[in-house]
Simulated assay, not measured.
Amino acid sequence: MNFRGEALPLTDSDIEIIAGYLGCQVAALHSVIIVETTGKGFGPDNRPIMLCEPHIFYHELKIQSQRLQASKQGLAYPKWGTKPYPTTQNIRYLWLDKAMEINQEAALSSCSWGLGQVLGINYKICGFSTILDFVEAMKYSGASQLYAMAKFIAADHLQVYLRNLAWSEFAHRYNGPAYALNHYEIKLEHTYNRLPASEKVIPSPPSNYTLDSLLPSK
């Protein structure tokens, strides 16, 4: 599978559209983007930023022979933290290529993708019919990646914390119970405070047409 797509960069207009969708300040959403991803959704080779999750892959493999094969190859294990994460995108994509040979859907679903590092198993709540549609969007643009992230936030009702600038509550629910170890809530607040006043506004909600225009055309 070719993971190099259009790789269109995220724009200020894209962030404004999604902030309007979430009903939060542009600066609140921009802070999340900066802290979560340093604002980058693609590597220098135009492949989406991706993190493989072998423990998710283990549980996504429902056929025992596939699970055993993946385990023997070191591609899957039942418990998070069994091995360190691969440190480079090249190694992560090598993992993905091997994992897809065993089960393509399970492999793609077991990676965190793009700006928001949204886990592939969440593709349906992010507004996509299939995992392949989701991955195509991750390849297409930073706007598509932000769209998926926003849909995930809305599905979990996290937008209220962005609206209220409730950084600890947002970080806890977006990153999990260990969020404080990485000081996510402090980073979010400090980043927000550094952004200009011109971003501390809530845009009007976009139309469905405008929101869908962020995705690749079918």
Rank of each mutant, 00 (worst) to 15 (best):
I153A: 08
K124Q: 14
Q64D: 15
H59F: 09
V26R: 02
A155Y: 02
T37E: 11
Q66K: 06
G114H: 00
G41I: 12
A154N: 14
D97W: 01
A106C: 02
T37Y: 06
G114C: 05
L51T: 09
A28K: 03
M100H: 05
L108Y: 00
I34F: 12
I121L: 08
K79S: 10
T37M: 10
A28I: 11
I125M: 12
A148D: 08
L22F: 06
A154Y: 11
N103L: 08
Q64N: 15
G142V: 01
H30V: 15
G116A: 04
M100P: 04
E136P: 04
K124W: 08
A99I: 03
L146M: 07
R47C: 11
S144E: 01
G39K: 08
Y77P: 09
G116M: 02
A99N: 03
L108P: 02
M138R: 02
Y77W: 15
A19G: 03
Q64A: 15
P54R: 12
G114T: 02
L108D: 01
G127R: 00
L119K: 09
I63K: 10
F134C: 11
K40T: 07
I153N: 05
E101H: 12
S112R: 09
Y123L: 08
A143F: 01
I131H: 03
H59I: 05
H30Q: 15
R92T: 14
D156N: 13
K40P: 05
G120I: 03
Q64G: 11
A27R: 00
D133I: 06
N103A: 09
Y147L: 05
Y147N: 03
L68Q: 12
K62Y: 14
N90Q: 14
